[in-house]
């Protein structure tokens, strides 16, 4: 099966960066400390698809920081180069933290067991034995992904509302051409790597039935609501 290749990378409109602007930013970057950014230590490559549409699949480059052993937060780009678009973000939590979430929240989160064990989720440039030490932990986690920029449909700007994304949970879901494109670019073999990860285990209690959309698709809709004003707040207490 063929999927849209996201490396079409729609051209963002706008003028080239002016030299003065670039110089100014070089200067500010040097002076300012980039607190949370300096904690970003890891690049993970994987795929996401839309919560309501598996046929739309996006290559996702995660740049992750650990908050502690059970929580990571990642910025997601469509490609790992200088012109990468920040298309979304992902939170990763341990199984224990996931189980503390209310059931209604659990459906936003997806399991990572298949993504890791299939070899599809990997750390570009990191030798197998080293990345497997970390991925052994990732296999037991759950993730919540929101995308804001639908590059796969050719949007050259971040249009519309956020999308809840899901991840691969079994064979036959990922488009072959997307898989092969990544395998070629990063000189990896998902099939071969999956053999190396055969002994890894998913969540101790098994994948929670409320995770992965609770088995349904998830669609976001925008609703207009009355602004809560100081006056309307006051009325409540009259």
């Amino acid at each position: 099966m063929e999927g849209v290749n996201v490396s079409t990378h729609p051209q963002v409109p706008g003028e080239p960066t002016q030299t003065a602007t670039a110089l100014l930013e070089k200067a500010t970057a040097t002076i300012q400390g980039f607190g949370p950014i300096t904690k970003i230590h890891q690049h993970l490559c994987a795929f996401h698809f839309y919560g309501d549409d598996m046929t739309r699949q996006v290559e996702a480059h995660h740049f992750c920081a650990h908050q502690n052993d059970e929580f990571r937060q990642c910025l997601i780009y469509d490609r790992p180069g200088e012109d990468g678009r920040l298309i979304g973000l992902e939170y990763l939590v341990s199984e224990e933290l996931f189980l503390t979430l209310p059931d209604d929240e659990k459906r936003f989160w997806h399991s990572h067991e298949y993504e890791v064990k299939s070899g599809v989720l990997f750390m570009p440039g990191v030798p197998g034995p080293i990345q497997r030490q970390d991925l052994d932990k990732v296999a037991k986690t759950y993730g919540k992904v929101i995308h804001f920029w639908q590059v796969d449909r050719g949007d050259n700007l971040p249009l519309g509302i956020p999308q809840v994304m899901m991840a691969l949970t079994r064979d036959g879901q990922l488009y072959d051409n997307l898989a092969q494109d990544v395998e070629k670019r990063y000189k990896v073999s998902f099939a071969k790597e999956s053999e190396n990860r055969a002994s890894m285990k998913g969540p101790v209690h098994g994948i929670h039935p409320m995770a992965n959309g609770g088995g349904r698709g998830l669609k976001t809709v925008l609703k207009e609501v009355e602004c809560k004003t100081a006056e309307s707040m006051a009325r409540v207490f009259v």
């Binding site: 698709g217 998830l218 976001t220 809709v221």
Partner: peptide
Amino acid sequence: VVDVQPVEMKKIAPFP
């Protein structure tokens, strides 16, 4: 506000 609604997912293989 953004609401999230359960819907039938468009699929090419079973999910999850």
